[in-house]
Design a protein around this nucleic acid. Sequence first.
DNA 1: CCCATTAGTTGCAACAAGAAACTATTGGAG
DNA 2: CTCCAATAGTTTCTTGTTGCAACTAATGGG
Lengths: 243, 243
Amino acid sequence: MELTEAEFLRCYNVSLYERPSFTVDLVIFTVCDEQLRVLLVRRAEHPFKDQWALPGGFLDLQRDDSVENCAMRKLVEKTGMRAPYLEQLKTYGSRERDPRGWTATTVYFALMASNSISLAEDPEGVRWAPVQGEGVDKALAFDHAHILADAVVRLRSKLEYTHIAVHLLSEAFTLPELQQIYEIILQQPLDKSSFRRRVIQAGMLEEIAGKLRDGSGRPAQLYRFRDYGRKTFFPRSISRYAR
Amino acid sequence: MELTEAEFLRCYNVSLYERPSFTVDLVIFTVCDEQLRVLLVRRAEHPFKDQWALPGGFLDLQRDDSVENCAMRKLVEKTGMRAPYLEQLKTYGSRERDPRGWTATTVYFALMASNSISLAEDPEGVRWAPVQGEGVDKALAFDHAHILADAVVRLRSKLEYTHIAVHLLSEAFTLPELQQIYEIILQQPLDKSSFRRRVIQAGMLEEIAGKLRDGSGRPAQLYRFRDYGRKTFFPRSISRYAR
DNA sequence: CCCATTAGTTGCAACAAGAAACTATTGGAG
DNA sequence: CTCCAATAGTTTCTTGTTGCAACTAATGGG
């Protein structure tokens, strides 16, 4: 359905010029090579030409039925994955964040397993950058360093009370692998027996047949994530004071 | 700075018609009369004319420096408060949510103390509606019932690991008052001694001089919220398995 | 002065976590 | 074949937290 500008204005009773530029950006995390990494693309256009930025872009109002659909479409375009974990992070909108003026962007964060991704910087200017170190945070376009920092905070926080980390591994994984994901993201070693107790008692993993042989040492039991609809767990939450 | 449409298009390399209508809406909670209530306004225009809706509206690109500023401005306009709690909830954007076509709205949720609000429905069509019961959820315009439900989930969830409930009380409050806020929002009675232990041990409250005399019974100690910058606390978090 | 009422504390059993030592299962060297 | 390194997984014990109930404390009113 095409409208003239006049029709548009009558419909909405607000000038088109009152609308900020609106985009969708993605923070796509993976854990690879023992580091938390994020997908960056090199900007081809001004502003911030040739600097690294989070992938994203404008909505396609014809194709995208919703902001979430748009984010999912862009995620598939960039990574070619099928059923990734995708969650809305936050919307950033201000006059200052883009030198061209008022813009808003809704940012999603995604998690993907590191198998089947390529680490090498490819000619199109796409790169899996380690989140810590290498001054990644200082080199990013727009307010993307700030956005990335927020995403890392959210990711760390959600490790505490959800099972989202399983989306950073392939469908079948072992508990030592899962613990390593936690240790890499939280940047500290965890106690093995406490970690196992908690993850198992939360009851969202199930054993599957087969063991993972890793070259040396005892093979580890394989598990699969079982989504019972329960998204979070608070081991000792206030609502358990119920009498 | 005024631009012609042609300049605009050259800047952004995307048609204006590609931009969805963008608004900011508010879910303003208070606890009053032993119920969790939300501020609703009656719509004066189509669509959903005369139905109740969350307060909100378009950005003012001249006055609002950011989406958050816009939300704060609207909150002050609606409630006249000075330093309320305001947090971004989520952005809802799709072709379906408004019969006029593609729209996006960034929703903030706010908490305010129930003193100095008026409960009576005023002539301008503003109302503090109880969140539960009265079929509020079914009567709302657009997808506002869905948004309200999300806000309630977020509020309940954040009670578990933050102190945001203090923003529903005046600056000086007692622990029994705070516990009652929790019980109203979580819809279940809580154990007194466990509640007090946890809230005090989190270390974000400090005693202040004076006791609250409530007519009958022993007067209660007054407390004040002390914001140490720590926003959340997980009593037993995975990162405490650190070795 | 006693009692109802609400505030706040204490004591204890049950349970969860922290830490370390223990057993189990594999591959590989000799 | 045996032993050892290496990693997985369990057990045990101590310590701390929670659920619960009974207790004390402070106020107003009959």
